[in-house]
Design a protein around this nucleic acid. Structure first.
Lengths: 187, 187
DNA sequence: TTTGCTTTTTGACATAAATCAAAAAGCAGA
DNA sequence: TCTGCTTTTTGATTTATGTCAAAAAGCAAA
């Protein structure tokens, strides 16, 4: 919980009342390796803060799993699309390691927005940061060869390369596992 | 200006005071075909609303132009990254047709946030929508073949295919112009 | 209609990456 | 240490797409 509050305040300074209100609204969750936080077809009602562990989001396309993001310590994670729109998600969220998370529901968050202007501002700023990360990722995806994309990943997100199995990274980069293995042996 | 206000209210209902405040803060801009709204290296201080015309954002990678978004009537456009972070942009924004735009500066917008809670909420919601669009685009980019990506573009954004020169669409899809031409002749 | 410029198409060839299949390496539990 | 399971690597082949070059088509102004 300390880590959660520290991370929140790093995004945007908030009042003590807002801080106290937030403390009461998060619930602790402990999950084990390979467990699912969310599966395809469900409506995602929660935003999660990942205190410890790692996690991935993936969806199925033509019978193949496409990993499209990873989460690590101090990240806020959710099925953004479903959480925002209230539609059923196409996404699965799976633990890569045993993990500790804190959860808040969308309804609770909406109530907080109404009571605390500074929490709404915090979230607006958090969205900006999320948006920029996704955009950077998108730009990276335009690198011509798979090899360039992988090298870019190593320099920009070494923690992913270090902590995530090769197969998931290949799916994240949009290439086959065999190709990634060959790229790696060449470097 | 009517179109701008109508579009804003379609995102999120705001008070009459907020609406009046907004009216005073936008400046009209008229630009001709192929002109630039923003070039690489500048700091982007404005958010624009596109009343009429079309526009693209692109950056240079290894001496090649990568088009990464298009804007049309009723879109808000800017170099998001630079606008949010205050860093110099890597992006160029170019008019595809003669266009009419409305501009607001970041400083003015920040002042509005402080004076009108509902404008901050409007922007938070606008960010959510932007994020979702970028995410959908990203998911589309993972489609296996260039041909699938193009067909997906036709069904999801037919206006792009109708109004934008082939070369820019190819760059947007991350394929060569020749490949897109061949794909099109096959369909 | 002719001219000149831009955009799109076509052709020949080179190459990156996918696929299918199997071997090797890594690793946890008995 | 051996066993069985998972992950990674290697090999052979096929396919999609890039690149370079040139022709064709489209289009606006004289």
């Amino acid at each position: 919980m300390q880590q959660l509050l520290a991370q929140i305040k790093a995004y945007y300074p908030i009042s003590t009342e807002a801080e106290n209100a937030l403390q009461d609204c998060f619930t602790k969750i402990i999950l084990s390796k390979n467990g699912y936080l969310l599966t395809e077809g469900k409506i995602c009602q929660h935003l999660y803060f990942l205190e410890k562990g790692s996690i991935r989001g993936f969806y199925n396309l033509d019978g193949k799993e496409i990993t499209h993001w990873f989460g690590f310590e101090k990240d806020f994670v959710t099925s953004f699309h479903s959480f925002i729109t209230g539609e059923a998600t196409v996404e699965n969220i799976q633990l890569l390691e045993g993990s500790i998370l804190w959860a808040i529901t969308k309804d609770t968050l909406t109530e907080l927005f109404n009571r605390h202007h500074d929490i709404e501002r915090l979230v607006r700023i958090a969205y900006e940061k999320y948006y920029i990360r996704l955009e950077e990722r998108y730009v990276n995806a335009q690198f011509k060869t798979a090899s360039e994309r992988y090298e870019e990943l190593i320099s920009q997100s070494p923690h992913i390369v270090e902590r995530v199995p090769l197969g998931y990274i290949a799916s994240y980069l949009g290439i086959s596992q065999e190709t990634l293995s060959r790229i790696r042996s060449r470097l």
